[in-house]
């Protein structure tokens, strides 16, 4: 399948599905880093806010020794025809041409949720409730990320706050603003088994430049032409086929995620 060339200065995330134990540390680290509030008592997996969401995927009956796997699902940061960008009526979604990061300006969002309908990866989350922290816990919020309010859409932005901080510190050290900076999103940092790798192919931190070309690399729903910047790795054929919607394994999957 042909695929557009990822610009070497743009960030990619490579998630090794064979290393993910489904522990959820990435989800927790993400929520803390990005000031996502604890769940409302009535929230469920369908109404929660989990920028990073790990799902368990069952193979059905042809798991060739691995009946299930875990797939962490952040925003896939689509590089082409980014579905959420074109649909937003008020330009609240932007693609940063330099980094390739799809950025949601929650401050401008009116909460029409059209972008959520457009996203094939369901990586966008709506604030069904106002964010609420137990008394005092709001003091532990990350000062780099503004909390959002009820009624707006938000999603993973590869820890934009960290990117900004890295950018600022690079500028202090005299680095040109066009050079990619090295930083790591919270999920990648938190992953105990180092299943999540992150960087630019140019700097090739953590070897992402090579990993995306490896034979076990794949992306979710590639035929939609969205060219996600999140790659997955698995040595298991059924996982690769399933993620790419190739027919042999398209029936019988179940999910808990």
């Amino acid at each position: 399948m042909k695929s557009i060339e990822i610009s070497p200065s743009q960030y990619v995330m490579v998630i090794d599905a064979d290393r993910c134990t489904g522990c959820g540390a990435c989800m927790v680290a993400c929520a803390i880093e990005n000031n996502v509030a604890p769940a409302h008592p009535d929230a469920t997996d369908r109404t929660g806010v989990t920028w990073m969401k790990v799902v368990k995927v069952s193979s059905g009956n042809n798991g060739d020794g691995k009946p299930a796997c875990y797939l962490p699902l952040p925003c896939q940061q689509c590089a082409a025809e980014t579905p959420c960008v074109t649909v937003c009526p008020q330009n609240a979604v932007e693609v940063d041409q330099q980094t390739g990061i799809v950025f949601q300006m929650s401050q401008r969002c009116l909460g029409c949720r059209y972008c959520m309908a457009a996203c094939p990866y369901h990586a966008r989350y709506f604030n069904w409730w106002d964010p609420e922290w137990p008394e005092g816990m709001e003091q532990t919020l990350n000062p780099d990320v503004a909390p959002r309010m009820r009624g707006v859409v938000e999603k993973c932005n590869f820890c934009h706050g960290r990117y900004q901080a890295a950018r600022a510190s690079a500028a202090e050290h005299g680095q040109a603003s066009s050079d990619p900076v090295t930083y790591e999103p919270a999920c990648a940092q938190a992953c105990p088994t180092r299943a999540i790798k992150f960087g630019t192919p140019a700097n090739n931190e953590q070897g992402v430049g090579d990993l995306v070309h490896s034979s076990s690399a794949f992306r979710l729903l590639p035929r939609l032409g969205t060219e996600p910047r999140v790659y997955y790795l698995s040595k298991h054929k059924w996982i690769r086929q399933m993620a790419q919607m190739e027919k042999e394994t398209s029936t019988g999957e179940e999910v808990h995620g």
């Binding site: 959820g24 989800m27 769940a39 929230a43 997996d45 929660g48 799902v55």
Partner: peptide, 16 residues
């Protein structure tokens, strides 16, 4: 545990 663990235990189906 921190209420933020609700991301795992309530807002996703990750754990049984």
């Amino acid at each position: 545990v921190s209420p933020i663990l609700s991301k795992i235990y309530q807002e996703s189906d990750l754990k049984p």
